[in-house]
């Protein structure tokens, strides 16, 4: 089956999400496929968001933005960012089949988060 992961691989991904992203101050992180399924997730313990709906919308949003990229002659926009008053969302492509969505508060700097995301993505790809 194309997107089934072994328990060991999922363990590794979850520890990367926890150690690189939650440690860096993210409130919640979900690792999803392009169909909107959640493959792995981590949060800081005080996050009550409906992550299943977020995953469905996030996959749809990413797909829609990539379709727009094609219209303007780009292959894709591999990174998206939505800024809110208190919470912000950061989307990044991991590979052709998966994405990382991060929810973070205003106490985390975007630059720092981006750096951490790039590291985490690299580690996940190397598993």
């Amino acid at each position: 089956m194309e997107n089934s992961f072994t328990p060991e691989k999922l363990d590794k991904i979850e520890s990367i999400l926890a150690e690189d992203l939650i440690e860096a101050g993210a409130n919640s992180v979900i690792f999803i496929d392009r169909a909107g399924n959640i493959m792995a997730r981590q949060d800081n313990g005080h996050c009550e968001h409906d992550v299943y709906s977020l995953a469905a919308l996030g996959a749809g949003n990413f797909g829609a933005v990539n379709a727009m990229a094609n219209i303007v002659g780009e292959d894709e926009f591999s990174l998206l960012f939505h800024k809110g008053q208190k919470e912000s969302l950061h989307f990044s492509k991991v590979d052709e089949e998966s994405l990382l969505i991060i929810i973070f508060g205003k106490d985390v700097s975007l630059g720092f988060l981006r750096l951490k995301v790039a590291e985490a993505v690299k580690k996940i790809r190397e598993i």
Binding site: M1, N3, S4, P7, L10, D11, G36
Partner: peptide, 15 residues
Amino acid sequence: MAFINPRNKEVQVKI
């Protein structure tokens, strides 16, 4: 494809 999580024994099905 459905996502099958062998770790927490959950399967997500898209209809």
